[in-house]
Nucleic acid binder design. Structure first.
Lengths: 340, 340
DNA sequence: CTGAAAGCGCTTACAG
DNA sequence: CTGAAAGCGCTTACAG
């Protein structure tokens, strides 16, 4: 059987209060007593029961994280990174995946509530914009410390990359290479910022946006991004859209796009330049290797964890909702060359 | 503030015992009383506190899972799959990543113990064979219900794919295409079974294994599989090894290998046939698309969850350690063609 | 400095 | 069928 604080107290010949004081590093305990207790703990290989502690502290040392899927390197890497950082701080991460299933939304909220998590990290729910906002609001109204990777709501503190600025940088780069017919394939799942950056850059270069070259997406799922990229690109080409460069709102879409272009007999980058977004590990390994924008995953994770733990551990410090925007880096590889 | 069972009892004008009976679906409660209580629960939006329940039931409804990393599609998909299946059964998944850091091993064990998880799923620890075995044994000796995806120990119940048989199938296939100089790049992280399957197939075809064509690996990490594949392949070629086909123990190694071959001026599949293992989503998207073996992820997850929950929920049913081996499917794509 | 006692929010015999 | 009481394993005032 598992030993309890009583067993340790008996073993060390002290009261359970003293054992508790030792465990919690209270300085009142005399050195001798402390050592006696330590030996007993060691001997019995005693570990305090979290459930019992939780009852009193009202703290579970558990953080919930809502993520659309783990079968996607970007979210997996982010979740793994956060898990390790939290572990170092003595917290445990509870990951909930929605897999784009709207039914999961309320189950998820229940789990978070009954588990009494100390805080929640919303990566993205991937349940469609309306559902994402709805559930975020439930969470906000619940009053639990929250950090998001997307500012769905003004009351939310969010951490994200400078998607708009880096998208502008991508398009600036393409224009610098001589491209002027630049297509864009986005997805509602990656937000509107990239498309805005794309449009802004064109505007600043006085290139009118051609709506026939722009796909904003609406129903694609996280599992099928590459297929989505393939289909959109193929449709664009078969519809006779004229473009020499293509900016995709993530790397999987870009990879699908390249596949589609090659299947239609075109070569990337010789015939079409393609740029992705995220810099997943495959971006460097794909052929051609992908020009893309690197997500600052470690910084995002670190920043989110820092903000969340500060809110939890120092509730006296007033908290103002804010958006933390991290710079991103354009990574130039082989998938995009100069315009012919 | 959060409501407790007392608030519900007061609201419904009954005792807390009755509320508890309603919550736990005990049939003793009179219909009228039950409905009264239900209304009170609904009205207060009451959710029972898990920590308090855990204290009594000695059950946390939490399963721990130890996985080397989440930044890798295979493990991410497996973890996500398991999480969803457990959620449906009312359990919560606690994912711990080791990121190949041996220091994490004991922290991980502590977390699992103090959280009082009801069971543990060991995907793979990725801490090197010795550490993996050591920590698995600690877990076994602890006596907690356990399921593993690798039979490290006879006392362990494991679920895995038929890696040896499917590797034989791969090599049989290559031989059928006319290849006889077949190289192999493995990794200790993917186990010895694939190499054994490779050797068995050669043997059965009376082709002597050429040790110069075999790389077993020893220190590579999960994060750098593709780099490892690249380096090994390059070295193989520069050392003048003669081979027309290459079997890699996972898809990332295979992708790195293809990159290396192309960089050395060779074409896949025209000059060399390459086969991977796992069938990650990129296998179908890579160029050339990868011939590989599909891991039965959903079946592995389902089987592991089923076995684990049965052990937890029906402790009276005697449990015999066993290894459940699932068949795998060879997926033929473009990366391997006939020998010239 | 140490210990006896109350209490966290539940469940479970046991009385009635 | 319902309720009063004990107890799960801890922490925290409070006495001494």
């Amino acid at each position: 059987m598992k030993y309890t604080i009583k067993d340790v107290a008996k073993e060390a010949n002290v009261s359970i209060a003293t054992v508790s004081n030792v465990i919690n590093g209270k300085s009142v305990v005399k050195k001798d007593t402390r050592e006696k207790v330590m030996r007993a703990i060691e001997k019995l290989n005693y570990i305090p029961d979290q459930a019992a502690r939780t009852m009193i502290n009202r703290r579970t040392n558990t953080i919930g994280m809502v993520v659309p899927t783990l079968s996607n390197e970007f979210w997996g890497a982010l979740a793994g990174n956060i898990q390790r950082q939290l572990m170092k701080k003595g917290y445990t991460l509870l990951i909930l995946t929605t897999e784009s299933d709207p039914m999961v939304g309320s189950v998820m909220l229940n789990t978070l509530r009954e588990r009494n998590v100390d805080g929640v990290i919303i990566a993205s729910l991937g349940l469609g914009r309306d559902n994402d906002i709805k559930y975020s609001q439930d969470l906000i109204e619940w009053g639990i410390p929250l950090v998001s990777f997307h500012p769905f709501d003004k009351r939310l503190t969010a951490v994200w990359g400078d998607y708009m600025a880096s998208s502008m940088e991508v398009v600036d780069h393409l224009i610098g290479l001589g491209h002027s017919r630049i297509a864009y394939i986005g997805s509602f799942l990656s937000g509107i910022e990239r498309e805005l950056g794309y449009r802004n850059s064109l505007m600043l270069h006085k290139i009118p946006a051609d709506e026939r070259l722009i796909v904003s997406g609406q129903n694609e799922s996280f599992e099928l991004f590459s297929q989505y990229g393939y289909d959109c690109t193929r449709k664009l080409c078969l519809d006779g859209a004229e473009f020499s460069a293509l900016f995709c709102s993530n790397d999987l879409i870009a990879i699908g796009a390249i596949k589609a272009l090659e299947d239609l007999g075109m070569n990337v980058p010789a015939d079409k330049a393609v740029v992705g977004f995220d810099d997943i590990s495959m971006a460097a390994l794909y052929r051609p290797s992908l020009t893309t924008v690197r997500q600052p995953i470690a910084e995002m994770a670190g920043s989110a964890v820092h903000i969340l733990l500060e809110r939890i551990e120092r509730p006296d410090v007033p908290h103002f909702p804010r958006t933390v925007t991290l710079p991103m880096k354009l990574v130039i590889r082989q998938s995009c060359g100069a315009s012919k």
